[in-house]
Design a protein around this nucleic acid. Structure first.
Lengths: 210, 210
DNA sequence: GGCTGATGTTTTCGATGTAAACATTGTTCT
DNA sequence: AGAACAATGTTTACATCGAAAACATCAGCC
């Protein structure tokens, strides 16, 4: 972490990754640019050379997150090139898995309080690219008469809403973290859903089938 | 807003409602207890008599929100007492509507960074009560052989995930606020979904039908 | 009428976001 | 090679914030 030269080398990316690590341990409103700067071994205002404001850093983290997630989804998709139906299910699974493995980044995607899509064009594009993975598959599926004959954007958005809700709920009602309330119906339901993940996603996919 | 007596009267509830109003205009991390205190016409540390920390205030806002939402859902449910299938659809619609009408409260429900369910038992209960509205309907539906023969908690959680995803996405990709990107597929899809709200929810409900 | 607990106030502290002026380095043009 | 310039990092400064501590005022009960 120590730095011999005056310049850091890649402070921007360092800050993004430090922020991810930090966000995993503590909530977003406890994250301070100053603490990040310290951890990166840099003066307290150095981050402002790379991010106009704290929210701009969050936007950068989210953008970075979208890039990672998009790659992850593409890998899942490419493993099932011949079978669109199965590819969609696998991408859905991969979506939920990535969200659960990277909660700090995933939550930023939808936290309009912390991140302003309007002010960061690259973030918007990164989000669109991610959606395109789902959208492309749905388009193929519609061509092959697998999915309902409706606008592809609409079906893709429907599916996205389902898997997003699934991932988001699993995060916020994480059965592992809710041990004190193991017997609450909500928690029981989410635990069951979590275990039957594949079937649940198949249910979502089936709901837009012909 | 001026106060004649030394005591405020109902500072606790006032702060909760001031916080809601404020959260609508500015993001959560820009909300300060001091500003709330000023708006309530009270000294800067008075709020600490009612909320141990800033997060405790957020938890209280969320709890209050759950109470309101639960009432809203119950009204929708009771309007269709004979017809479970329709009641579920209407509750789903009411859920999405309430979420869109009260984004600042709704987002708190799922913002584990701002709100700690483990530390606030009443919040957890309020959330459970809200879930019970859905769960109760699903139970009745299962008894009447309308829904899949699976654990009620699981079906209810599935449905909840769907409507939550729907509401959450609609909020974060609000077509009205994304005019700069009207032609992006994501936005087109969400706009379409928003207009065909009832059909989308019927789709979700059908996915757990027999 | 005075005691007690609940509620509100004042004072105070260290930490934070961010602006401004300055220092150092890498790059590019001659 | 050397000079100008842009990019990056530093120092200093300020208003604001969350929160703790000690104190003030009120309401209800004996």
């Amino acid at each position: 972490m120590a730095r011999s030269s005056y310049h850091h080398g890649d402070l921007r990316q360092s800050l993004i990754e430090c922020a991810c690590a930090q966000l995993r341990q503590d909530s977003a409103d406890h994250l301070s640019l100053r603490a990040l700067a310290r951890k990166a071994g840099v003066s307290q205002t150095a981050p402002y050379r790379h991010f106009e404001t704290k929210n701009a850093l969050f936007a950068a983290v989210a953008t970075y997150g979208f890039l990672l997630m998009t790659d992850h989804l593409k890998v899942a998709r490419d493993r099932h090139e011949g079978d669109v139906q199965e590819a969609v299910v696998q991408v859905g699974l991969a979506y939920v898995e990535w969200a659960l493995a990277n909660p700090e980044k995933y939550q930023l995607f939808f936290d309009s309080a912390l991140v302003d899509y309007g002010a960061h064009e690259d973030l918007h594009e990164a989000g669109c690219d991610c959606f395109e993975v789902i959208l492309g598959l749905i388009r193929t599926g519609i061509e092959q008469d697998i999915f309902l004959d409706q606008p592809a954007e609409e079906l893709a958005a429907t599916l996205w809403a389902s898997v997003h809700g699934f991932a988001s709920l699993l995060q916020s009602k994480d059965p592992n973290a809710m041990q004190q309330h193991q017997d609450a119906p909500v928690v029981k339901g989410m635990a069951a859903l979590s275990m039957r993940r594949r079937q649940v996603i198949e249910l979502f996919v089936n709901s837009i089938r012909r």
